[in-house]
Design a protein around this nucleic acid. Structure first.
Lengths: 218, 218
DNA sequence: AGACTGTCAGACCATTTGGTCCAACCAGAA
DNA sequence: TTCTGGTTGGACCAAATGGTCTGACAGTCT
């Protein structure tokens, strides 16, 4: 379980206890929502896993959907952090290498968050659509400019920045969402440091260097 | 309706009609399961969308889980087809280019299947785990040998075949599962032929040629 | 024609679900 | 102590859900 909020303890421990309770509920909710979706997870099960009564859960979060949104909100920020770090001052090689590593770390440390995010997307992101169209879109547009700058400068081969970003998202996310499949085939998880490094290294090598020995000029 | 194949079936029109009904149910089930998962989709909703009564649905599929498995089974074969096509006789360039195209086509033409597959993976693939460990694993192992052959032959730069396959899976799958996100950002879908071609082309270019202009060292 | 069999739907049931109500608890202010 | 307002849980409810039962209708076989 990996809580996403840095809870700074407040004045009296009494109020902090309830905040801790809220967080326990959110953690349990993340665990179950990420497994069964909004409709598939029951409040009973969440309350049970959090070790509180259902009434108590509904005291803190007035409805199931409110709880779901609260959990999702907590995820979103963490999720977009890596792409914000992309900066024109870096070399494309360093920036992309770093981005890949951070993203694979996310897939390792926040599997459930990754999955819940994926679930929400699959369902058409009814609760995030707005933010996708505004915040995320603007962010991607901004970083696309950076990438295009690199290309114009000749330090990156011509590529559509959008598709590059999708490729990076898809690849790294895959290691969290399809962990079962990967474990079935490779017998390893990102929790294994060696496998983690191999993952980062291989993605970096393919994306930056490509697979073909000599770059075919066209 | 006149049956096109007057084979020696017991009752040609009747059997065909019921099979069509079964398929309509499976289609509706795929549509709803892929959106809400096994637990999130109700039999009522599925029957309703298929245009049959719930009783009729349960007549053809004795339980919800049986229906789910039946749908999943139909998907699996289609899903593994592209990787089967990878062949040592082809050049790696041709093979990988072809694989990427086929896989993006799958993401375009079978969005719901892709999503249901993804959902199942996220939940830990309780119903597919066996086949992942046996069939899929063997298949991947076999194709990894082919890739390693290419590398030994010097027609492919050294890379872990597993991670290459994961990258291809993740990237292509992403266009189906995260279509909402992609549409929010790029404003296009794979249904748009231009966007489809751009997708295929960019993935091919990145994977085969890499991003960096010229490797200064090897 | 009549019996048989496969196909289909409406009524029904037990369980689970999200959510409400009310009574009780418990720390601190008076 | 008593009062008070935030906090907590057991009992409860209406709706939805997966699944069963009974019976009807339509072809087919004798």
């Amino acid at each position: 379980m990996t809580p996403l909020t840095p809870s700074a303890a407040v004045s009296p421990g009494r109020a902090a206890a309830s905040e801790a309770r809220k967080q326990r509920i959110r953690d349990a909710a993340l665990s179950l929502f990420s497994q069964f979706g909004l409709r598939g997870a029951s409040l009973d099960a969440i309350a049970n896993q959090a070790g509180v009564s259902k009434t108590n859960l509904l005291y803190y979060f007035p409805s199931k959907e409110k709880l779901y949104i609260s959990v999702l909100q907590q995820i979103l920020n963490t999720w977009l952090e890596p792409i914000r770090a992309i900066d024109a001052d870096q070399s494309p090689e360093a920036a992309i290498n770093h981005y890949i590593r951070i993203k694979v770390e996310l897939s390792r440390d926040h599997v459930q968050a990754s999955r819940l995010f994926c679930l929400e997307m699959i369902q058409g992101a009814p609760l995030l659509k707005e933010e996708l169209h505004s915040d995320l879109r603007a962010l991607v547009e901004e970083k696309s400019k950076v990438i295009e700058g690199w290309i114009a400068h000749g330090s990156l081969l011509p590529v559509d920045p959008h598709h590059l970003i999708y490729l990076l998202w898809g690849t790294t996310q895959h290691y969290a969402d399809f962990a079962v499949q990967i474990e079935a085939i490779s017998g390893k998880t990102l929790a294994d440091p060696e496998f983690f490094e191999a993952t980062v290294d291989n993605i970096q090598r393919i994306v930056l260097g490509g697979l073909l020995p000599r770059p075919k000029e066209s």
